[in-house]
């Protein structure tokens, strides 16, 4: 299948100030994301995962290597706006990405910038709001919404630009459990129903258990590229990268350690309970 995103030998440095050494934020990173996939990028703070987000959205440019979105290189200046339209971006703080004082006008902000004709705007905004289940809130003010709702509005704002891919940079870090579930369900539905490619950057492993593919970042390097199942069981490897595997995986790991042989790649407690039943038989 065609690649939505292709990162090829990318390195990136942050300038820290005069006389100080630049910090290598990304060190020769390469990976691809296929069209329609739901992928997770995970790593602790400072691992380079947020830098990737900004490279994908042509906010930063690679020091060396190339970032291709739908085959367009972010280095070509004439592509920038097309790239930003194709690969929309959601940020961490739900408050700091709402521009307008009324929900529906905020959703319209992106397509307005793209110069979408007035006649089409209403339809786009309504459809996007319906998609995230926030249509009834279209006349609300941002401060009347919960964190999770604000984040869904931000997603609607990107959807209204009709992107092929959505990149979310720790979208749930500032939300309560209810808000987290709302946002995660919304993006999962988008991926399934609209076949939108989703790149979810997070530091919660349990958010990405059912991803098609995950990328683990550590100190600017790509440490893992593959299926969640194959890596979540490597509890010690994950802990070395300062990541915490899901509860069920932790339990099965401890069980194995104390001499009970159980499948080590369980990701949820239901799965774990089933496996324990199998043992008894």
């Amino acid at each position: 299948m065609e690649n939505m995103i292709s990162i090829q030998n990318v390195s990136f440095k942050y300038r820290t100030g005069e006389g100080m050494e630049d910090v290598l934020a990304l060190d020769n990173v390469s990976f691809d994301v296929k069209k329609g996939d739901f992928v997770g990028i995970i790593g602790h703070n400072g691992s380079g995962k947020s830098t990737i987000a900004k490279l994908l959205n042509a906010i930063y440019f690679p020091l060396s290597g190339d970032v291709l979105i739908s085959g367009m290189n972010t280095k070509d200046e004439e592509n920038i706006w097309k790239i930003r339209q194709k690969a929309g971006m959601i940020f961490q703080n739900p408050d700091n990405q709402m521009v307008a004082t009324i929900v529906e006008e905020d959703v319209a902000f992106g397509p307005e910038n793209l110069g979408v004709p007035h006649a089409d705007l209403r339809g786009r905004v309504d459809e996007a709001l319906n998609m995230v289940g926030m249509y009834e809130y279209k006349d609300k003010k941002p401060h009347e919404l919960s964190g999770g709702q604000k984040q869904r509005i931000a997603i609607a704002g990107i959807l209204a630009m009709e992107p092929e891919c959505i990149i979310l940079d720790e979208p749930t870090a500032m939300l309560d459990p209810k808000g987290r579930v709302e946002v995660l369900n919304t993006i999962k539905r988008l991926n399934k129903e609209k076949n939108t490619t989703v790149v979810l950057i997070t530091h919660y492993m349990d958010e990405i258990v059912d991803c098609d593919n995950i990328f683990i970042m550590n100190n600017g390097k790509l440490e893992y590229d593959g299926k969640p199942k194959d890596v979540f069981k490597q509890v010690e490897f994950l802990r070395k990268l300062r990541l915490e595997p899901p509860f069920a995986t932790r339990v099965s790991y401890e069980m194995n350690k104390s001499g009970i042989n159980i499948k080590d790649d369980v990701l949820t407690i239901d799965e774990l309970a089933e496996e324990i039943c199998q043992l008894k038989v």
């Binding site: 940020f91 006008e105 979408v116």
Partner: peptide, 25 residues
């Protein structure tokens, strides 16, 4: 901090000044 975040978010949503902008209302 908010101003910086917002500027980034606006750019990510293709904001580039008033030229060629259309309006919902």
């Amino acid at each position: 901090q908010r101003a910086e975040d917002l500027a980034l978010a606006m750019e990510a949503r293709c904001y580039r000044g008033g030229e060629n902008r259309t309006r919902l209302k």
